[in-house]
Nucleic acid binder design. Structure first.
Lengths: 315, 315
DNA sequence: TACACAAATGTTACCGATAACATCTTTTTA
DNA sequence: TAAAAAGATGTTATCGGTAACATTTGTGTA
């Protein structure tokens, strides 16, 4: 691998001139610049990032802390990582994955954190490097997220337009901020239409939603739609209705939230609030790198979700 | 952040002594070692990995090349990454994710590659750093994988024991090595029982398997079991049978392969050949790091799969 | 023409670690 | 007991870059 020195010798200039051609090209005459470019090309020169990092006292590492249990989780995070990695690679940063099992925070230039619980706030606040949260929070930490409230608000609207006259919300039984926002979107839409909200909450497992349906099947009138806080729950609801002999989408509607994977595998495909996780991941990375290079980026980045049409709502 | 120098001053020794305490502790007297340890503790010293990397002319970066399309993929790769990342972090390496969109190979100490196609062989052979493939291959590249053949072989055996007398294999329509191996396992088991193999192949999408069932329902006799090459296909088969009014597991059996996520979400849960991807990822990382430090590890690492019992086979 | 000042390039020191060699101390051996 | 060998520690150079300062060259002005 060619070094600065090799290029310098070949171009008959000093190392600094080469370094300047790269970092401050306006301080070098065109003549020398050409020589240097030529030499760089001939030697296929690539700067040594490690050496650069050493002088800058940086690590070129970003830690991605996924604090939720990954084992049972949707491909959601995979997409997130792909998005983040894409940006980081572009700027020649690399990634370290931190999980609760694997809890090493140190030796990095910044953090992206997701799935935090309240008790994590302590150590997070102590971090002395730039950080950005993935997922809304109410602790004043900068974050990137979907506009959760708008997602369910829009979806509920769509469901009403499709003529279902009974809207039930199936939520995730958790105190996280995103859940409150999703509930709020549903509630607002329903109230604007002079209807009474009806909410149920479960752990995020399809079979719980399925059981809910089968156990309450007698009480569930046709023309009801279920607005679910996740595709997983939606899948359970869908399966429950099918099992009880209900007809989707004619008599019952179902909608999900995420649009990463499950909504596609379900049958019929779930009409869902689609988050473009890859894009959000990229933005997240971009944002963090800006902070690291103190281009003063701060505040939140909210993405408007889109509705992805499947076969669980009638036309 | 404290440096070697700081520790050295505090302990009243030279930098080299401190360095030796860390890397060649047997060359330093106990007395000095204690002093140095003390100083390190007081200053909370952590070696600067970047500086270390510079002298070793290494990057401490491993590239994970996922050459398959990730967008539509199961959480499989997420688990893989978690496994790899776990090991790498332990050894203070970090990860860069390479995809086809994002194709930067360079500046790293080694590669883990998965999802390669035949045409990738060219550039892969040219890589001048240690590499290990995730997933079996027949190009002589070292790999880590499940014992695919044993997986379907065992599964077919189990299915026979459970009394199904007609075994159909539902494969993935691809020329990859793992698929051939899975087919081979099924075929061998079936032939050992004087039965005639019956194989179908589809792209790895649940709805294709589902359609297959609904379209051929008349021809499918009760007491048939479907050995599928993936959980996705199994899910489709399962749904197709349910839709046609068939009873699982009483009249029909279904088995999958992977056990990462879908098998859990399906209903009933799929009896599947479970791969412990996280473990395999760790092993993969470990193996690569050994190669990097030229502890001469080479050859393949084959994991014996386990059968994970769901509700798609009768007792 | 000479001097001041700006622009272009080169030199040196440094980032934080380690290897190789140098020096000093202790032990072994004849 | 002196010389050689072994053991413990320190010094220097180095990895590949960049910042800060030093030097050279060129230009404008009196």
């Amino acid at each position: 691998m060619a070094t600065l020195m090799d290029v310098a010798k070949r171009a008959n200039v000093s190392k600094m001139t080469v370094s300047r051609v790269i970092n401050h090209p306006d301080m070098v005459t065109n003549e020398l610049k050409q020589l240097v470019y030529q030499a760089m090309k001939e030697l296929d020169y690539r700067p040594n990032l490690i050496a650069k990092a050493l002088v800058n006292n940086s690590t070129r590492i970003v830690k991605l802390c996924i604090l939720e249990d990954i084992d049972t989780t949707e491909p959601y995070y995979m997409n997130l990582m792909v998005g983040i990695a894409k940006t980081l690679d572009l700027h020649q940063y690399s990634l370290q994955l931190v999980t609760r099992r694997n809890f090493d925070i140190g030796n990095c230039d910044g953090y992206i954190i997701t799935g935090m619980r309240k008790e994590d706030l302590d150590w997070i606040k102590k971090l002395d490097k730039p950080l950005i949260m993935f997922g809304e929070n109410r602790y004043g930490l900068d974050y990137v997220d979907t506009n959760n409230k708008a997602g369910t608000y829009k979806m509920a609207k769509l469901v009403l337009e499709r003529g279902y006259d009974h809207l039930v919300y199936i939520g995730i039984d958790s105190k996280e901020s995103f859940e409150y926002s999703r509930e709020a979107g549903y509630i607002q839409q329903v109230q604007e239409n002079q209807m009474i909200p009806e909410l149920y909450r479960f752990d995020n497992h399809s079979h719980l939603a399925e059981e809910f349906i089968t156990e309450h099947w007698k009480e569930i009138e046709p023309n009801t739609a279920f607005i679910c806080a996740s595709d997983r729950l939606a899948m359970g609801i869908e399966r429950g209705i099918s099992r009880c002999g209900g007809s989707i989408p004619d008599d019952y509607g179902v909608t999900g939230f995420d649009g990463v994977f499950l909504s596609q595998v379900a049958s019929p495909k779930i009409t869902t609030v689609k988050q473009s996780i890859i894009e959000m991941g990229s933005a997240c990375g971009e944002n963090l790198l800006d902070k690291i290079n103190s281009k003063m980026s701060q505040g939140n980045l909210i993405f408007e979700p889109k509705i992805s049409i499947g076969g669980t709502l009638r036309d």
